[in-house]
Design a protein around this nucleic acid. Sequence first.
DNA 1: ACCAAAAGTGGAAGCGTTTCCATTCGATCC
DNA 2: GGATCGAATGGAAACGCTTCCACTTTTGGT
Lengths: 341, 341
Amino acid sequence: MASIKDVALRAGVSVATVSRALSGKGKVSAASRESVARAARDLGYVLSYNASSLASGRSRNIGIVVPTISRWYFANVLQGATQELNERGYDLTLYNTSGEQRHRDAVFQDLLMRQRLDAVITVTLKLTAPELHQLRAVGKPLVALGGLLPEVSTIRVDDFNIASLATEHLLSLGHTKIAFLGGTDVFNVDFNLPAARLDGFEYALDQAEIAVNPQWLLDADFTTAGAYQKVRSLLSNPRGRPTALLCASDEMAFGAIMAARDLGLSLPGDFSVIGIDGHELGELYGLTTIAQHPAAQGEAAVARIMELLGEDGADEPAGTPPADEFFPTEFVLRTSTAPPA
Amino acid sequence: MASIKDVALRAGVSVATVSRALSGKGKVSAASRESVARAARDLGYVLSYNASSLASGRSRNIGIVVPTISRWYFANVLQGATQELNERGYDLTLYNTSGEQRHRDAVFQDLLMRQRLDAVITVTLKLTAPELHQLRAVGKPLVALGGLLPEVSTIRVDDFNIASLATEHLLSLGHTKIAFLGGTDVFNVDFNLPAARLDGFEYALDQAEIAVNPQWLLDADFTTAGAYQKVRSLLSNPRGRPTALLCASDEMAFGAIMAARDLGLSLPGDFSVIGIDGHELGELYGLTTIAQHPAAQGEAAVARIMELLGEDGADEPAGTPPADEFFPTEFVLRTSTAPPA
DNA sequence: ACCAAAAGTGGAAGCGTTTCCATTCGATCC
DNA sequence: GGATCGAATGGAAACGCTTCCACTTTTGGT
């Protein structure tokens, strides 16, 4: 494997000059730069990230911690983040905290610490105090996506507002009997998220002076199948059913729609459903929803990281990073909501 | 940040001994081992992977290249692979070739080469000759998941057989008018996969001496929405419709089922659908399918890598790695298939 | 022409490990 | 009881870079 020495030899310059020429930092004459480039190409040289990182303290590698991969939101965040990072020539090291607790511990105690990372992105993760402390101890930039961690640069949507907006939509259509399908904390994700959405829902009903029916406050596991079960039994209740339902995720909304159909209800005539997410399948289901854009969130998280690393292309940190604005969302009106019969 | 020197100092031994004590390699007295352990704990010491990799040539980091993340199969492969790697104390660096060509090139030309990786797993990737050459040049173990790369240790399911099995199921129910919904190569994935499934389909029909109706050979993009469109127009054709459909993926099968329902067909009475994949949602849809287990495949790929690295726990490579057996799949009978009316 | 500043360059000191080698020292063997 | 062996250890040389520093040329201003 060719090393920088070989390149230096072949180019007839010093190792120091090769390093400068290849990294673009420092002064190098056009001639040297040229011959170094040729030598490197001839030798098929690529620099050793390890050696480079060791010497410079920067690794061009950022870590991302997710609670699971195989759900829509997370897969799309990853998709956005990898693209953006590859674009900038960074590597992405993936940590998955799902599964046994000891794996999660291992991630925080060891893997993240090995100073192989320039920064860390956490996605919708509810960190324990020690874990947060661990992360802080690494001393690297930290960006939280979706959760809100104390004193950590955070990118997230306004869950409260989204839910209340969605609820207002149903109210404005004339619904008064509205149910809510939230989620339980299956993946150790930040519990704040489902909670904020529930709060938003209750707030909107409250504003409309409609009492919340506790029977109609449901929890599922954020999966389509789980939602199906819950909604099916909700709608089978002989003692009256709601005319509309707000689901805390689109994937659950799909289950709700399927359940309603299987029971012979006609949608949206007999039953309106609104989701939150902006899942691609929403279009097929005709699902009215509030779209967030997870891939864009992944990209934004990377951009924020780059700011913190002073790599945003512009010169150094332009003051404080944009404070905690909320990530934009979008109301998508389709055919799953209509006035009650 | 505490370094190995600090630990050595505090433990009252040499740096060399600390290294041996911590790695467990070489002879170290119980006493030294003990005091090193204590010193390390007190100092909150974790070793620098970069320095360690540089010195030893091993990085405990493996790379995985996927064509996209946000589809069921890939997300689940990743899920399995990350778990298994974390389990073994390895890091996982993720490369995503979706998006612009130049990103893909960047991945193969630079990122993968930086000798930061002990091994590489490619998932359902159709590599070009130069790309394969690049990978070979790294000189690290390489395992292909899902594709078949010349002379590369490969883990994959028997696509041909799966498709013919699925087709035989439909035949055995008495269907003769059977359509096939395959996929086009949207993500630069190995084209061999859809092709093999189509071959299996045609083979089975051939065995049954049934002519393939070219009108009923469809292509979609492996998405639910894409399949919905195709199948909807297939079933709307006034000049006769098939009574059964084999879909090359479950996600497409869902779209097919929705299309059929939206057209007022009753399933499986009027129309049988069988999928391939084993998607969780299959249960909700009542989809008969042939399940592969992507998470298990991810784990298997990691296990294979570990064998190649001589890390399987057992002593050194036990002969040749298990030749190219096919990864097991499973026929799952549900309610989407029945004899034709 | 003359001098100061800028440009270009090489030497060498790290960066934090691993590992080879040599050394010491009880323990074991006839 | 001296030679021999293995266990335990430390010194020091890599590993392949980056970067500080000092030095030599250019350059540009006057």
